[in-house]
Amino acid sequence: MAILEVKNIEKNFGTLKVLQKIDFSLEKGESIAIIGSSGSGKTTLLRCLNFLERPDKGSIIVNNEVIFDADDPATQLESEVRKKRLHFGLVFQDFNLFPQYTVLKNVTLAAELLAKERPNYKQDKKAILQEIQARGEELLSQVGLSDKLECYPHQISGGQKQRVAIARALALEPDILCFDEPTSALDPELTGEVLKVIKNLAERNTTMIIVTHEMDFARDVADRVIFMDDGVIIEQGSPQEVFGAPKEERTKQFLARYKKD
């Protein structure tokens, strides 16, 4: 049973066709790496899944529920977008931590705000907040930051920031966790610690979509690899297939260029 089905997504910015005929699906517990050169539409695809962009065509189905269909306005109600977003988590390239909150508060803030909508919030406020706090601490220890709970974002390194961002995205327990080039804004010596955390998540069978330029990492961690070029999925398959024996000419060219770099 696919947890996510993306059907025939199309997105244009003016006359620029950013995404065309994007079709893929994702099984629960599976991780997909999306590779491709800059401007190939990878990031836009993630932004569509997270409702930061609205596709012009196609549909997105999560757990058999159509959460977006470009032909069905009923699936696009602004009031429901907020709930639907929670199926997905997104880790940004440049972290986007909230600078005025501690590391721990960055992780717990959204959960605390959402908890206010629970019917039993008033009576059980204390217990609920404690539970969220404990969960935040647990997540931060999972990404190796137990000793940074009370730090502010400007006091920690880029790699640590990105690990906080990962814990923050996990705090809402999304069905699918998306990474948008999570190491592209980091110094080379800091990418390792972030990749390790993501690898760890993959080993725990977290359902993930990872847009990345780290080819070795993609080969290592992903169950499946999608290669995109010019807004189109050129090829998808297991890492062995895509990296070891690419079928399409454009995939070969792209991988050859990467090996040279």
């Binding site: 709930k83 940004f92 909230f98 995205a169």
Partner: peptide, 27 residues
């Protein structure tokens, strides 16, 4: 305030009002 701050709030399921008061206002 960088656009990423609003987007981070959005993908975490915050409402516009929450984003304004909890995320951007103090910045």
């Amino acid at each position: 305030v960088p656009k990423g701050q609003y987007e981070a709030g959005q993908v975490l399921g915050m409402t516009k009002v929450q984003i304004f008061f909890k995320v951007t206002l103090l910045q």
